[in-house]
Amino acid sequence: MPGLSYAAAAILNAVRSGHPYGFDIMDAVSLPSGTVYPALRKLEKAGLIRSQWERESLARADQRPARRYYQVTRAGESALGEAAQKYRFPQEAAR
């Protein structure tokens, strides 16, 4: 993915900082769901993040539906490293 936009880079940074699911990322980067979810799809398609479903048994124990968690791939780490030279991310994203 040549050159991340600021929004995409901020979202990638939020995922790496420990905000693994959609609405948590939204709150971390203060971007609306209409920006965050399409960006997550694009990042996943580009191989910068990967997603996996939470274990059903864990969710069932809490009597709630299982969430989809995102995590940064190795390619995402290097893309984020490049983006960090270009942008300054807000500290709140870090957990």
Partner: peptide
């Protein structure tokens, strides 16, 4: 499944806040 799991956590939200969150489903779907 993903959206319903996220919306499950939004139960205490007001109708307007909920609508704001769900409005993102349209660009996501597109």
């Amino acid at each position: 499944r993903e959206w319903e799991a996220e919306l499950w956590w939004c139960q205490p939200f007001s109708r307007l806040e909920l609508l704001q969150r769900i409005s993102g489903a349209i660009p996501d779907a597109l």
